[in-house]
């Protein structure tokens, strides 16, 4: 506990660096993955290819990707941009599949009814398909958020600043409290972001039952599981 009290400013700084590295990938991957997922769902031919590419992308180990990306984009190894891009790629890989599954889970009768009453494809996407796929997308982005926050710490072995530096530094200086601080901090950030996403979900999708979400969550989860 002493270690924590003596290092509060450093903990605050590392937390901010952690957020600055972990939050952009979550947001960017969501924004990029939804249109790609829509395409994959709309055009059945590309679906298999897109999902296979995403699966392979997702299977690339993170540390090697953190090492390899700077070579491709020409930044330094300790520059957070390499980690941010790598985490964005993982987020896209997961969210594209979730989006495609979510959109394809929309009841065909609903889609046909929307077509019948005269929705254009554009407005049907925004006003019918997207809201109905919302719970699935939300559960997907929650998975992306938790895993991104945790993966961010791996960059520390290359010197990228985040709470993960408490692990590498704690090992070198033999301070268990420092390592525990890093673990607790990372888990807390993941929890807070998760709560935030749930709140955003409530605000954007007020029609969902807030207490007994059992049915919705079940569907959602099995979608993600299939991913």
């Amino acid at each position: 506990m002493n270690w924590v009290l003596e290092n509060l400013p450093l903990i605050g700084e590392r937390t901010l660096q952690h957020l600055a590295t972990a939050v952009p990938p979550v947001v960017i991957s969501f924004l990029l993955a939804v249109p790609i997922g829509w395409l994959a769902n709309r055009f059945r031919r590309v679906r298999g290819t897109v999902l296979t590419v995403c699966g392979l992308l997702y299977s690339i180990p993170s540390l090697p990707l953190f090492v390899a990306l700077p070579a491709l984009i020409g930044t330094g190894l300790t520059d957070p941009s390499g980690v941010i891009i790598a985490l964005t790629l993982y987020g896209i890989a997961l969210m594209v599949r979730v989006t495609a599954d979510g959109l394809s889970s929309v009841d065909l009768h609903v889609t046909q009814a929307a077509n019948a009453v005269g929705f254009s494809e554009w407005s049907r996407f925004w006003r019918v398909d997207l809201p109905l796929a919302g719970p699935v997308l939300l559960s997907g982005i929650r998975v992306v958020s938790v895993s991104t926050v945790s993966l961010t710490t791996v960059g520390a072995v290359l010197g990228v600043k985040s709470l993960g530096l408490f692990f590498t530094d704690g090992i070198q200086r033999n301070i268990a409290a420092e390592i525990f601080t890093g673990i607790v901090g990372t888990v807390l950030i993941a929890l807070v972001l998760d709560l935030l996403l749930v709140l955003i979900g409530r605000v954007l999708m007020p029609w969902l039952p807030s207490v007994s979400q059992h049915a919705t969550r079940t569907t959602v989860r099995s979608r993600v599981a299939a991913a």
């Binding site: 299977s59 998975v143 938790v146 895993s147 989860r221 099995s222 993600v224 599981a225 991913a227």
Partner: peptide
């Protein structure tokens, strides 16, 4: 089963 990588957070498996 899970999703691909594990850590996938809240991923679920099976029903």
């Amino acid at each position: 089963t899970e999703t691909a990588r594990t850590d996938l957070g809240r991923v679920e498996v099976g029903r």
